[in-house]
């Protein structure tokens, strides 16, 4: 089977008078349906790896393939088109468009992609927001919401275009335990029921336990790619599927 996203010998160096190596010689493949956690100490390059896998950053060496296709030769707009269709991001610090309501924040990527009509897009956004427990907050603007609520809007937005690769950078950082578990359950369902590849950075060992596989980074290198310790997820214990 072709991996959803694959890094081959990827190194990223920030140029400068003192060049900084963010990640080095990364070899990793994430399959469709895989739910993967990236763990590691602060500064080990977790976020940097996520940006590379999500085609937001370009490697200095090596190559990233999406569904088996090398992305090295693509232009900035080519990468943007792939992101629009295939990638959903949740950043370490929630990033929402401040003038738009929660609902509109989720609708914007759908309107850009244009796969759904405006009405369908709204209904879909409502379903996604309900899924993350924000059914009664949809009309609010980000500045009228709590940090955790905003983070959940960001998660709903990452799923807006029904991407097959979801990348989350500590999505539960500002959530309580209950909401943290809800988010991870959604991710697990996306992977198990909808064959999405979900890659999330987390510091929480309990949450990391819930994934299929944990990749451990130290100093920009993968020290354990987790392929020895795969575990299956209990699919029967899951609630209804998210709004797809």
């Amino acid at each position: 089977m072709t991996p959803a996203v694959e890094a081959k010998n990827v190194t990223r160096v920030l140029p400068g008078t003192v060049p900084v190596t963010l990640v080095r010689e990364i070899d990793v493949a994430i399959m469709p349906g895989e739910f993967v956690a990236i763990t590691g100490p602060s500064g080990s390059g977790k976020s940097s790896l996520l940006y590379l896998l999500g085609l937001l950053d370009r490697p200095s060496g090596g190559a990233i393939s999406v569904h088996g296709e090398d992305t090295s030769g693509l232009s900035g707009d080519g990468l943007a088109a792939l992101r629009l269709k295939h990638v959903g991001f949740v950043f370490q610090f929630h990033f929402l468009l401040p003038e738009f309501s929660a609902l509109d924040n989720v609708v914007v990527p759908m309107r850009r992609l244009g796969r759904w009509t405006d009405k369908e897009a709204r209904e879909r956004a409502e379903r996604l927001l309900t899924e993350v427990g924000l059914a009664d907050q949809m009309r609010k603007r980000p500045d009228q919401m709590s940090g955790g609520q905003r983070q959940r809007v960001a998660i709903a937005r990452s799923m807006a275009n029904d991407p097959d690769i979801i990348l989350a950078d500590e999505p539960t950082g500002s959530l309580d335990q209950k909401n943290g578990h809800i988010v991870f359950e959604i991710f697990a369902r996306l992977a198990n029921d909808y064959r999405k590849s979900v890659i999330t950075v987390t510091h929480d060992p309990h949450l990391a336990e819930q994934t299929h596989r944990q990749i451990h980074l130290v100093d920009g290198r993968i020290v354990d790619d987790g392929n020895g310790a795969k575990r299956t997820f209990d699919e029967t214990a899951l609630p209804a599927p998210p709004g797809v």
Binding site: G54, D77, A80, L84, K85, V108, P109
Partner: peptide, 11 residues
Amino acid sequence: AIMKSMGFAEG
């Protein structure tokens, strides 16, 4: 930055 990460092109 958000819009670009979503997949908005430069244009």
